[in-house]
């Protein structure tokens, strides 16, 4: 039986790489019986989706940002 440590590692690995047949089967049976790893897997899917979103949408919250006037001047003088 796979440990939670190994199972959770495979859960992350499978986002990026194909698991071997043996790994897939072991993970499948582990997830059937392990609520914690099942939760870990679902939550990581949500996190992935939000990370993907953060790249497409300009952030809908904005950090306090000091004036960029200086930067503008610097850019314009750099173009000459």
């Amino acid at each position: 039986m796979l440990s939670c440590k190994k199972a959770s590692a495979l859960i992350i690995k499978r986002n990026d790489f194909l698991l071997t047949r043996k790994e897939r089967i072991q993970l499948f049976f582990h997830l059937l019986v392990c609520d914690a790893c099942h939760t870990f897997s679902r939550q990581n899917e949500v996190v992935s989706k939000v990370l993907e979103q953060q790249n497409r949408l300009p952030s809908n919250w904005q950090k306090e940002m000091s004036a960029v006037e200086e930067l503008k001047e610097q850019i314009i003088s750099g173009l000459k």
Binding site: T39, V46, K49, V50, Q53, Q54, S59, W61
Partner: peptide, 23 residues
């Protein structure tokens, strides 16, 4: 041990405060 999150998954998408915490 991962706990169940009380907020539904779909409510975490497009949630600016969650997005900020993640950031």
């Amino acid at each position: 041990r991962p706990q169940h999150w009380i907020t539904e998954e779909e409510d975490l998408l497009d949630n600016s405060s969650f997005s900020r915490t993640l950031h």
